[in-house]
Write a protein that binds this DNA or RNA. Structure first.
Length: 300
DNA sequence: GGGCCCGCAGGG
DNA sequence: CCCTGCGGGCCC
């Protein structure tokens, strides 16, 4: 078994097309012949294929919301039970935690303006920006992974000796920056209100240029969550608790007690926090009930 | 080795 | 078009 390779495969630049899954596998661009996700729980996911069939997928080009696997009838492809954070799904979550690049391949059967006319096409590297669970069209629990394109910069080797005509001939999509700028005026005001102390642990980080804290959104900004950039959707957190919150390891209950941290969330009298947004976060990011958390890996 | 999976070809 | 049988590679 060849070792798993993350990032671009030498000899197969972005835009390379393949006739079949067998060719993709042979090239090492996406090794499994049928599965959509290549990877494991330990190392993360190195590639995925969008080939249609998953009704909850969203493809906006530079942003993809990819559906995890599992819970489908193998014959019909119909979702008949809940998905779990296992196998390839866990691999993609691992890639998110580690910030690993995922090769994305689109197939012609995937209904999207970004799909190739025929066969499969390697479309570059993406990062797994976020993952959460949702109720899919089928009514069953699905895991969802937001992938964002890593902007492609031509390497020095590619630039050297490259004629202008060649450059203009290369098909390049315009890259849309989808990230919302997070530190708005209201975010700064919330941080000032708490004097840069974490609402979870009270930590105040002080550097020579001043204090540092992060504004965390409770209901995430951007589709499909569409949380607002408003004070009632913003928390002032230290980097550790921000990361823990984003990855579902810190849950704020309705009474402001916390799962994953001691005590109760500190809330300033002049800071109203939306219960609705807190509920949204719990519903989509907390580990599902029947989902046993994977055993933590210890480094020895 | 078992079970899973965003194939694929072939036939109706 | 839809359905069926037969799959290879890989994770666990």
């Amino acid at each position: 078994m060849a070792e798993r390779t993350f990032g671009q495969i030498p000899g197969y630049p972005e835009g390379t097309t393949f006739d079949s899954r067998a060719e993709l596998s042979e090239a090492g661009v996406h090794r499994p012949l049928m599965a959509g996700i290549s990877g494991n729980a330990r190392d993360g996911a190195d590639s995925i294929v969008l080939s249609g069939g998953y009704e909850d997928d969203k493809d906006l080009g530079d942003e993809i919301v990819y559906t995890g696997h599992g819970g489908r009838d193998p014959r019909t492809g119909v979702q008949v039970s809940d998905q779990a954070l296992r196998g390839g799904n866990l691999a993609l979550a691992k890639s998110s935690l580690e910030g690993l690049p995922v090769r994305v391949i689109r197939g012609s059967r995937h209904a999207s303006p970004y799909s190739p006319e025929s066969g499969y096409r390697y479309d570059g590297l993406y990062t797994v920006d976020d993952y959460w669970h949702d109720v899919g069209r089928s009514g069953f629990l699905i895991w969802r992974f937001r992938l964002l394109k890593v902007p492609t910069v031509p390497s020095a080797a590619e630039r050297v000796g490259e004629g202008r005509a060649d450059y203009s001939a290369a098909p390049r999509r315009e890259t849309t920056v989808l990230r919302v700028v997070r530190d708005t005026r209201q975010a700064r005001e919330i941080k000032a209100l708490y004097d840069y102390r974490c609402q979870v642990c009270g930590t105040r980080l002080e550097g020579p240029a001043g204090p540092y804290a992060e504004a965390a959104h409770i209901r995430p900004l951007g589709a499909p969550h569409d949380g607002p950039d408003t004070p009632d959707n913003t928390l002032c957190l230290c980097p550790n608790h921000h990361a823990l919150f984003d990855h579902g390891g810190l849950v704020i209950e309705e009474d402001l007690t916390m799962t994953g941290a001691e005590g109760r969330l500190t809330v300033h009298p002049r800071h109203r926090i939306s219960n609705e947004h807190l509920r949204y976060r719990r519903e989509h990011y907390r580990a599902p009930e029947e989902e046993p958390r994977p055993a933590a890996r210890t480094t020895t």
